[in-house]
Amino acid sequence: MALGAEGEALAFAAGNRTQMAVSSECPVCHTSNPPGEIYCGDCGFLLASTPGAVLEAEDAQPRLVAADGREFALNPGRNRVGRIDADLLVADPSVSRTHAAITFEGGHCRVEDLGSTNGTRVNGQRLTPNVPRDLADGDEVAFGAVTLRVVLPEGVGLEAGQSEGESEAAPAAAASPAYLVAEESGTEYPLPVGTTTIGRRSANTLAFPGDPYLSGRHAEVRFEDMVLTFMDLGSTNGSFLNEERVPPHEVRTLSDGDLLVLGQQRLRVRLEPVIEAPDDRC
């Protein structure tokens, strides 16, 4: 009431009228925009509208940044890094199709090379394939010839090994009770619900590119309704379940402790008993 027409206009400028000859501040990212702009020049928000609930911490997004400024966001859980069909697509010929995985959960961030051709390096140090390594803010990760800088929000990756950030909901994939465990290295490959293909080619869910005795698409494991089944896909050197050859395209049910031999890979089946209640505590 006490406000004159002008004051009123100013008061509403940010919310309603973009045509006003005053610059408008974006309600989302607080960038000041020149008059007449329809969308915020920085975040693209429609300036004439009102944003929904503001998220708690906007910069809490862990990401990798390339030398040319290109950013790769990391999602909670497992991020596959590769040249094709990956979560984190790095389109460079020196990057393998399935190159590495970055896991971001429970307050830390880990990188693991998945048997790539040109390898993965952290701060210049080459990683052993399939052995995860913790990442800290500012680390340089190189996939083949592409080097990316790790940007982590505060409180992530500082105390690796100590699981503190339990508020971060663990992704469903990690809760899978079925695994294949490599006999030699002890590496665990969780089997998600659905089909997991095994083979030499990197397009497989479980790829062993370094094993020449494995066929490109060798076999598949299906995990449905808590039942784990196995099928050879017509591989050259065959698949062996507990030292016995499985004829191609014949379905076998797997139980805990079974041994699968595919090419040079000796994989032990681990099926954990199901516990219904999610135990997030301790």
Binding site: L46, S49, A53, Q61, A73
Partner: peptide, 16 residues
């Protein structure tokens, strides 16, 4: 082009 749209406060945005 495939892009990743990150989470943000609800509302209408020009993304590109």
């Amino acid at each position: 082009v495939e892009v990743e749209l990150q989470r943000r406060p609800a509302g209408t945005y020009r993304v590109a």
